[in-house]
Design a protein around this nucleic acid. Sequence first.
DNA 1: AAGAAGTAGCTGCTTCAAGCAGCGAAATGG
DNA 2: CCATTTCGCTGCTTGAAGCAGCTACTTCTT
Lengths: 163, 163
Amino acid sequence: MARKRAELVAALTEEMPWYISAAVRYQIAVADQLGMAVTDIHAVGALLEIGPAGVRRLADLMGLTTGAATRLVDRLEQAGFVRREPDPNDRRRVVVRLVPDRVADIARYYEPIGERWQQQVAGYSDRQLEFLLDFLRQGREDASSETVALRTTGLRHATRRRP
Amino acid sequence: MARKRAELVAALTEEMPWYISAAVRYQIAVADQLGMAVTDIHAVGALLEIGPAGVRRLADLMGLTTGAATRLVDRLEQAGFVRREPDPNDRRRVVVRLVPDRVADIARYYEPIGERWQQQVAGYSDRQLEFLLDFLRQGREDASSETVALRTTGLRHATRRRP
DNA sequence: AAGAAGTAGCTGCTTCAAGCAGCGAAATGG
DNA sequence: CCATTTCGCTGCTTGAAGCAGCTACTTCTT
């Protein structure tokens, strides 16, 4: 029935922000335990994804200025999570490279939630897993493109029929 | 086959943090557009959930000290999102109440992503919606309880067989 | 080949959110 | 009624981030 469906959609819509919120708060708790800033953990995650990178690349990825990124790398280097290496091909550049052992120290904090996660999906069928993956991917793409739209054009869309 | 399933789970595990990240970055973009801090938007969300509340209650909810919460309310009041009201029953207390019109100004920034969201779930069956809702709820509960565990007992669990 | 322009990263300064500690006012409990 | 607790506010400090300007180096132009 349409009634029940509307309620389902409403429940989902309501659930989403809280889901995100819970995930964010977990990250904050991890950062607090490690005595580091959330941004710094994100940066380690980014470096894990893209491998060794220059400061500017990291800055763009994190949405920071190069100045802020320099300080970020300072903190990470100070705490032993990364090393600065010279780029033999371009002597202006500094290559930021992760220190695997230290990264493992961070990863340990995600093990408890990872186990829960594994248990949760263990009972799902392959079809359900595919559905979920699809849902998440599309949601992420929507969020990313809307983020760009918001930053570039501001709030132009919606509820506008005619110019 | 087990092979494909393992890949699915791996893909999902990999997708999750990026999904969260995209959502967070959208929130940051909204906050930037509004010229306010992300925390302040969270606080408005919290007040929407629980209704008018005292400063301490808000502080606990946001994981802030009362001092920080006072400044938070200062900012929100300054920007017109809330009003401070005296509590007739307890003259020490201050009741923080949202100003609906101003809250609507924030909500407008979530309309574009909301529309995308509606389009996405429009094609889903009721069964799929239920599955999704269940997935999100359990995930949120896991994250919440693990957050508490992390903050109270630190990293005690896992990979530990004997005392 | 040489000078102009662009790029990479670093540094000083400022801003602002948050923590901490201590305060006065008001409620509560023995 | 006095002691204790609770509530919110304020001064001070810390720390992340932005901005602007700088040096060192590379790339483009002619």
